[in-house]
Simulated scan of single mutants.
Amino acid sequence: MYPIKFKPHYVEKVWGGRNLSSIGKDLPKGNIGESWEISCRKDVDSIISNGKYKGKTLGFLLSERGKAIVGNEIEPQNFPLLIKFLDAQKELSIQVHPDDEYGKKEGDLGKTEAWIVLEANKEANMVLGVKDCTKKVFYKGIQENNLEPYLNRIPIKKGDVFFIKSGLIHTMEGAVVAEIQQNSDLTYRVYDFNRGRELHIDKAMDVIDFSLKGKKASGLTAKEEGYEKTYYCYNDKFSIEKYEIKDMLKEKSDEERFYVYMCIEGSGKIIYEGGEENISKGETILIPASLGEYEFKGDLTLIKTYVPNIEKLEKEILKEVNYL
């Protein structure tokens, strides 16, 4: 196998714009809100853009090579992640996502996600959870079109990372972000600024967890020869790590799981047995579980995500803590 790249799938949104061009995207016409980087769903099945399987879909590749791609601990027929870039030029709807139990009733997974801020204007902000209200008060705010007093709205800037657990009410405006999420497309809107789209108030009220408080991830940074690595957040759905590479990073694939790297700054090469691939800002690449040893060379910043073995990852982090 080899590192796999995909054609972006662009989605026009009422809140989108043209800012994904700032991360190197060649946008079609329209207000583009999303670039789906890696998806394996009935509605969007990513098309491979390099190597032997160029022109084939990720779904086809998983049916052909299965565990060689996703690893021994992940079921090929249930690809677990959905990877995107978002341009929230205008504010998203005020929204919430269900957990797995509720999502299954809707025929999908739940949706826990994370946002990594890549660009932000001076007024950029997010809503992460509620404040000073109960479920009853919040519902009254929806009915009276007066939610703002009950929203935990915070300013954001480039480099911020936020973990958004299912059940957390949220929105965003004025930013370009990398989005890592469960492979789900369930979103329940409680307010959409009178833009004419469907609302899902009853379902949203079912799933909002009023005890959740979102906050910026601080991260734990370890300095290594040639690069720095920051651990941001992890759970059983995904882990997020940032690599700031100034020279070289050597890694090895894991037979139990695949890795995904999103390049958010700079450019370089990924070298593996049998070849190499260029990677630059705005590109995403999948490392198959069976790839073996590989290395990144260049001056670039990468976001790495994968479905972790929690025990194994925590031991790795503890080693870094003791080393620091």
Rank of each mutant, 00 (worst) to 15 (best):
Y10C: 00
G174P: 03
P288V: 02
G268V: 06
E314Y: 04
C40Y: 09
R257L: 07
G16I: 02
P28V: 07
G219E: 06
Y150F: 15
Y243V: 04
F210C: 07
D26F: 06
E256G: 14
V117W: 08
T171E: 15
L220Q: 12
I271V: 15
F258W: 09
Y272Q: 04
K25Y: 05
M262I: 14
I271W: 01
I180G: 05
K131T: 13
Y102F: 15
E148R: 15
Y294M: 07
Q182G: 05
S211C: 07
C263R: 05
A88N: 12
I285E: 02
G103H: 08
V44H: 10
Y323P: 00
K25V: 00
Y294T: 04
T187N: 09
F162N: 11
V260R: 08
I164G: 03
E106P: 00
G298C: 02
F258T: 06
K315E: 13
G266I: 06
K67L: 01
H97D: 11
E314C: 03
N145F: 10
I201W: 09
T134Q: 08
V130A: 01
I303V: 11
E256K: 15
E224T: 09
P155I: 07
R189H: 11
L86P: 01
I245R: 04
V70E: 01
K252T: 15
P98F: 05
I142S: 09
A68K: 02
T57M: 10
W15E: 03
Y10G: 00
E277H: 07
V11D: 03
S21K: 14
F163A: 11
D87W: 04
Y272A: 02
C40N: 14
Y232S: 07
N78S: 14
F296I: 04
D100M: 09
D45A: 10
A217L: 13
K246M: 12
L212S: 09
A217M: 15
I32L: 02
P288C: 01
E244G: 03
N72L: 12
L58Q: 01
A222L: 15
V161P: 06
Q89K: 14
S39G: 11
E173F: 12
Y2P: 00
I94F: 05
H9R: 10
K237T: 12
A124Y: 06
